[in-house]
């Protein structure tokens, strides 16, 4: 299990993994710790952290419990981050694989489409998509997936382009394996490690995107999210700075943790490269 050993030897990755585990735990426990809706007003507004027992992080402008908001927000951030990445992979991996494997016309057409989506400024497109589809978890996930699949397609295509002429793939072709076997058994498994690394970084980017959308008021109106908390605290920054600092630190830590884990995975999956660094 040398992969695991290499991964845990990376101190940053280990720290990232611990932070990430804590955030996941918080998200999972949110409905147990704070069974009430996080939107409910529970105390007078603008309680500073620690001012009243039972409200360790204080209350916001509407008197809602910041700790409850934070816990429920963790759930949304992680959900959107992971699901949108999975959707993006589901679009990008097959497109990239087909383009790289078949080449020629197929590649031309698929890559023009990919380039097109890469040219469009992705945050602006996400805004437009969510605005037009009306904000909801579904539309946010879809919008983030739509703007984040092109790098996956390009990566997978690149890997396929270089792997399809590998001698072991040609050997498998010669012994009579069909396209399906060649793609699924010979090539795809060997593209997985860079895709996994990219995916872990994409989750981080998706969380940032989701929080940015909610900050602009494009969050799902039924769910509490970190970006919404910061957006709502913007106008009261002078009176209650902690209301924007707390969720901001939460986003920062989560995204940082995912990046650290991604780098750790990269080092552990590509040991030759790691040694160069």
């Amino acid at each position: 299990m040398s992969f695991f050993r290499r991964f845990v030897q990376n101190r940053g990755a280990l720290v990232g993994l611990v932070i990430l585990a804590l955030v996941v735990l918080l998200a999972l426990l949110a409905p147990l710790l704070y069974p009430e809706s996080p939107w409910r007003m529970v105390q007078r507004p603008f309680l500073a952290p620690g001012e009243l027992p039972g409200f360790p992080l204080g209350t916001d402008t509407m008197g809602r419990d910041v700790a409850a908001e934070l816990a429920h927000g963790a759930w949304v951030s992680l959900l959107v981050g992971f699901v949108s990445t999975l959707v993006a992979l589901a679009i990008g991996v097959p497109l990239g694989a087909l383009a790289g494997y078949f080449g020629g016309r197929t590649d031309d057409v698929l890559m023009r489409i990919t380039e097109f989506f890469q040219t469009i400024p992705n945050f602006a497109l996400a805004i437009v998509l969510v605005a037009i589809m009306e904000p909801s978890i579904g539309s946010i996930v879809l919008a983030i997936a739509v703007v984040s699949w092109p790098p996956v397609a390009r990566l997978v295509r690149g890997e396929f382009l270089s792997l399809k002429h590998r001698e072991y793939v040609e050997a498998a072709r010669l012994v009579g394996q069909g396209h399906r076997d060649l793609i699924l058994k010979q090539i795809l498994p060997n593209t997985l490690s860079p895709v996994i690394v990219l995916a872990s970084l994409m989750v981080a980017t998706a969380i940032l995107l989701e929080s940015s959308l909610s900050f602009l008021g494009l969050g799902d109106p039924d769910t509490m999210s970190w970006g919404y908390m910061i957006g709502a605290a913007r106008t009261v920054m002078r009176q209650a700075w902690w209301l924007s600092v707390i969720p901001g630190v939460a986003i920062l830590l989560t995204v940082l943790a995912l990046n650290l884990v991604g780098e750790g995975l990269d080092d552990a999956l590509n040991p030759q490269l790691a040694r160069q660094r």
Partner: peptide, 14 residues
């Protein structure tokens, strides 16, 4: 066919 590169001619995951 027998290929040139002994390191590239076998799928590392099979």
């Amino acid at each position: 066919m027998v290929f040139q590169d002994p390191y590239a001619s076998l799928n590392p995951r099979i």
